[in-house]
């Protein structure tokens, strides 16, 4: 098991390295010279050259790449071109919004999808199954940002019970901060919940047909106990896998939703950096997102060892 952990950690590191190279290359071919954008069109060639030198843009590509990942490793992410502050601090600040937002959204989607999927599987082709099927298709089909707009319209504009956007900051207190995250989290969660419901339903339905479920019933266990203790327990591997894969979509969704609700999160930071050609911030935020996704998938892989005892041996 420790050997596996080491092996997976090594591959995690190599993946991160490869991704960093890819991100760096993409940033190089992106049109627009950051120095020119900072100075505007009226700048003279001399000032432009001076700034390029100051930003290190005159150095060869490989040197700039090594400088960048060297900085990443030591926690120095460079300085934002537009904000003029260290990017590390900027990301940390924005993370305080995006991380809770993502966490609440995942929690919400699991809280909706797990019972709904399990119930549909247990009562296949019954009314609950049909309604759950319809609802999850609806969740999948409707784009999150549109749901966000709708939620804001109903709960903030018409009913006035929720803030329509913005974030008061955690220093304003736990209650108001959380309240600002509820609507965007719902908007983010519904699509995830839809997909997760379908996956849970099919995974549990498949396990329910297994021989060991019949053995459990033959012991005299009631249907409910058999369902949760035996069937759902063995259906978790595909469910967790999809949950991990969906994390990517959650991040992508967060970029949109944070803009809809005007939340100062990482997604909004990425969007602003893109529109303002702040390549330093862009590069770091994209790298951060990629690292997050890779880390989540690493954790998903590790969770298999807890969920399926057969893999513990196989991995030795």
């Amino acid at each position: 098991m420790t050997a596996l952990l080491l092996r997976r950690s090594a591959s995690l590191f190599l993946t991160l390295l490869a991704v960093s190279g890819l991100i760096f290359l993409v940033m190089q071919v992106l049109p627009g010279d950051p120095a020119a954008i900072m100075l505007g069109t009226s700048a003279s060639a001399d000032t432009l050259a001076a700034l390029r030198q100051e930003l290190g843009l005159d150095q060869p590509m490989l040197v700039r790449y090594l400088q960048w990942i060297g900085g990443l490793a030591s926690g120095d992410l460079g300085t934002s071109i537009t904000y003029g502050v260290p990017v590390a601090g900027l990301i940390g600040e924005r993370l305080a919004v995006t991380l809770p937002l993502a966490f609440i959204a995942i929690l919400l989607s699991v809280a909706i999808a797990l019972p709904l999927g399990v119930l549909s599987a247990a009562k296949r082709n019954g009314p609950v199954d049909y309604i759950a099927g319809f609802v999850s298709q609806l969740f999948i089909a409707v784009p999150g940002f549109w749901v966000g707009l709708l939620l804001a319209l109903v709960f903030a504009v018409k009913l006035g019970v929720m803030p329509s956007g913005g974030f008061p900051g955690w220093q304003a207190g736990f209650g108001p901060a959380l309240q600002a995250l509820v609507l965007p989290a719902i908007a983010l969660a519904l699509q995830q919940a839809g997909v997760l419901t379908r996956v849970t339903r099919s995974a549990v339905a498949e396990v329910l047909g297994e021989d060991f479920v019949r053995t459990a019933r033959a012991k005299g266990l009631p249907k409910r106990v058999t369902l949760w203790r035996h069937a759902v327990r063995n259906a978790l591997v595909p469910v967790v896998t999809i949950l991990g894969l969906q994390f990517t979509f959650l991040i992508a969704g967060a970029v949109l939703i944070e803009n809809v609700f005007n939340l100062p999160g990482l997604g909004r930071l990425a969007y602003q950096a893109l529109t303002q050609r702040d390549l330093v911030v862009m590069q770091d935020v994209v790298m951060f997102f990629a690292g997050l996704v890779i880390l989540v998938n690493f954790l998903v892989d590790m969770s298999y060892l807890i969920l399926d005892p057969r893999l513990r041996e196989a991995s030795r």
């Binding site: 005299g220 327990r233 399926d308």
Partner: peptide
């Protein structure tokens, strides 16, 4: 039936490979 199954009537199945829960 759940009261009788297991308590008054026990059953052994054909496939020992699949008749037990792999995660328990």
């Amino acid at each position: 039936m759940s009261e009788i199954r297991g308590r008054r009537i026990g059953m052994i199945f054909q496939e020992p490979m699949t008749a037990l829960n792999p995660a328990m």
